[in-house]
Design a protein around this nucleic acid. Structure first.
Lengths: 246, 246
DNA sequence: CTAATTTGTGTCCTTAATACACATTACTGC
DNA sequence: GCAGTAATGTGTATTAAGGACACAAATTAG
């Protein structure tokens, strides 16, 4: 995001004189991945002088002819090479002083992708996965954006079948539990966890076992076909669903 | 919102020629109220030709020197006269063609206010409360914005003590139950509802009874002081709270 | 073939959700 | 003032889910 902004600074200043319309809109994506029992985020080195040495989220200015979702998918596609990813809008951040080059309002999305996915190509320089525990200061207000998205992710994982976007196609219940533990930052009881997951009926037992593992192999599972879409419909909690308006 | 846009159409067209920056940002507020056992929304007649005869949400273009929250409060203050209101950001809508006058991305907030509040002054013409059940087509994409905000409201009312912003200071449990029923669009069992509310410990029994009611008066309650702020901190469901990172 | 590690499973207890009924209080109309 | 009406206020039994907890079976490593 900051790269393009830099190039356009002159233009921003030019239109700053036009009352009420010196505002740019960007998308910032919190791209989560999972590897080595750790939740990770894809970050890029900020090339803005004000933030030299800091990392920032992946983002870009929205183009005049693209919807918000389109822009988000474009950014993901450009940066990761993947285009069939889970993506969810979280919050819009618009403090007056959040961007040093001018007024930029940003719409934050989070995305869940499988780090090991074969299509994933991190060709851009200075684009790397960072463990959440290693992250300190980020450029702009990206730290609070990251925290907001993480919080949303934590709220959603027990309710909707989405974490499977972080795992390979087939996985064991142990891997799944380790993933939940990494996201929530807690350890879970194995028996209760399995009971809870079984109750949700999200998984198909595919009648295969783990291979190349140094102990008793576990069964492998796959998320049911009907949940293999990018976004789940929302529901209201506790009460039966009602038609939106009567 | 549309009013101001109309005045600025010339300017929008002027800056439309500047690549990547012909985008305006607005706030749209879904202002909920409650009266006669019905959930209502404050709407204004659209004065855009394209939407003649239709109603729209209250909104305005964001000014260069104000944050999103500031802008939302300003709109509420301008339209209702109230400034100590519950306000929550819900979603940002940015379809390319959502606004006939040009590219306008809007950040949707919902607000809960007490219709009977003494400071509430609806001075603007064509500004009225509409029952949700009476609402059909709205201007722009405001119908989907309204539905999205209603859905969010429904998700939150059992989790956070917010509906009290729709009620007068003192209220009976019957009034509270009727409000929940109006929002959720279902009828609830009285005993179970009271048990559930009691469990949450949101209310103080103020040792007063209903007056001027044509049947046996019920006890009056008031929301606890600590919940009388505009916005509640969020929490994650089911699991103990964890520090955000590390 | 023994040790070590990990899988896989069931029970008890507590808490929350739901279905359901009756006595009490206050006003209304006669 | 008394009977009827309408609303308040309350408790129990059942079911479902969450959380604590232990042991036998499978596999690899040596």
């Amino acid at each position: 995001m900051e790269k393009i902004l830099k190039l356009k600074t002159a233009e921003i200043e030019k239109i700053s004189n036009i009352e009420s319309f010196n505002i740019a809109i960007s998308i910032d994506c919190v791209i989560f991945g999972y590897e080595n029992k750790e939740l990770k985020v894809l970050l890029i080195k900020s090339d803005l002088e004000e933030f030299s040495g800091l990392y920032s989220l992946l983002g870009d200015i929205i183009r005049p002819d693209e919807d918000l979702e389109e822009a988000s998918y474009r950014i993901l596609k450009e940066r990761t090479g993947m285009d069939d990813v889970y993506l969810e809008q979280v919050h819009t951040f618009g403090s007056v002083d959040r961007h040093p080059s001018g007024r930029v309002i940003t719409v934050a999305y989070y995305s869940l992708i499988d780090i090991k996915h074969h299509r994933l190509n991190l060709t851009h320089n200075d684009l790397h996965w960072h463990s959440l525990s290693d992250i300190n200061k980020l450029a702009f207000d990206h730290r609070i954006i990251l925290e907001t998205c993480l919080e949303r992710l934590r709220e959603q994982i027990m309710e909707y079948p989405i974490v499977f976007n972080l795992l390979p196609d087939k996985f064991s219940l142990r891997e799944l539990q380790e993933l939940y533990e990494a996201i929530l930052g807690v350890s879970l009881d194995r028996r209760n966890f399995r009971k809870k997951i079984a109750l949700k009926e999200w998984l198909d037992d595919i009648d295969e076992m783990e291979k190349e593992v140094t102990h008793r192999p576990g069964k492998l599972y796959r998320v049911k076909k009907k949940f293999r879409k990018k976004k789940q419909p929302s529901k209201i909690g506790g009460y039966p669903q009602v038609s939106s308006m009567s």
